[in-house]
């Protein structure tokens, strides 16, 4: 048993080293620097609470955090609805395993291509003279091009849903595939309608998958800065962009203080979600 523990540690050493140097140390560094001071062109070691005081007493901080939560909540709702429906279709309506695998792969391949290019690819669709506007005009639905299609909250949420629905489909599909089909037959035999089976059997059994998908989507949206910057045309802000702005101005201490608060927020959220699911068991 003792021997086992030693081998376990040896095997885990490379992993621990990478996480120590590139995860734990950077977090520690950010915490330290968040107490430092900054001039216009340099930063200096100190132990002051100025950065936090400025952050926590500024209206902007609260507005930006609220906006970040809004993005996370809206993206979560849409990715969950779409992801659940797609996973349900693949797991319960496609009858051959080969087709299930083929269609599932079709859903996951975009995840392995570049996010930035997938964002860029919305421009010809949503632009002022884009496909959406010209189609709507030629159909006579609108007279003037819609201005809010691109560079707005609408396009930000659309891009988030486009990028991250996969993260809902995959874990939900994984959990659904493990549901014993005889339970569904039993529900049908007991006289349940399709909706009742869905509501009282499938959804409760799919909860772990929904939780894992939620963790992914919430973490990705909360920490994002590039999608919001690109899709809002720099007109909306979230916490990630606030950090990035400070970095651009070389204000590393204030960027670090914002980063610490963001990290605490994300970890609290994810920690709460983790109480509802045992990730290792569900894989």
């Amino acid at each position: 048993m003792r021997n086992n523990s030693v081998i376990g540690w040896l095997l885990a050493t490379p992993l621990s080293l990478v996480l120590l140097v590139f995860l734990v140390a950077p977090i520690a560094m950010i915490i330290v620097v968040s107490f430092w001071g900054a001039t216009e062109w340099s930063i200096y070691p100190a132990f002051q609470f100025d950065n936090y005081q400025f952050l926590l007493t500024s209206d902007v901080t609260y507005r930006v955090f609220l906006n970040t939560f809004k993005y996370a909540a809206m993206t979560w709702v849409f990715t969950l609805l779409i992801g659940f429906t797609v996973a349900y279709y693949l797991a319960f309506h496609i009858r051959s395993l080969t087709w299930q695998i083929v269609l599932f792969l079709l859903c996951t391949i975009p995840f392995l291509t570049s996010n930035i290019i997938r964002m860029i690819s919305w421009i010809p669709f949503l632009g002022r003279n884009g496909i959406a506007n010209s189609t709507l005009i030629s159909m006579g639905v609108i007279d003037e091009p819609l201005e809010w299609l691109l560079f707005s909250d609408f396009s930000v949420i659309l891009a988030f849903v486009h990028l991250y629905t996969l993260f809902m489909v995959v874990p939900i599909f994984n959990t659904m595939m493990r549901i014993d089909k005889s339970l569904i037959e039993a529900a049908a035999d007991a006289g349940a309608t399709g909706w009742q089976t869905l509501w009282h059997v499938i959804i409760p059994l799919t909860k772990p998958g929904i939780m894992i998908g939620t963790i992914f989507v919430v973490a990705l949206v909360m920490g994002d800065f590039i999608t919001v910057r690109f899709m809002s045309g720099s007109q909306s802000a979230n916490v990630g962009r606030m950090i990035q702005n400070d970095i651009g101005l070389l204000q590393y201490p204030s960027a670090s203080a914002t980063a610490v608060i963001l990290l605490i927020t994300v970890l609290l959220l994810i920690g709460t979600l983790l109480r509802f699911v045992d990730i290792r068991k569900e894989l």
Binding site: M29, G223, D224, I243, I247, V266
Partner: peptide, 15 residues
């Protein structure tokens, strides 16, 4: 997995 990517970027850059 869940840490905002920009924190890794910032922290490693600072170190």
């Amino acid at each position: 997995l869940v840490i905002p990517s920009i924190l890794i970027s910032l922290g490693v850059g600072l170190i």
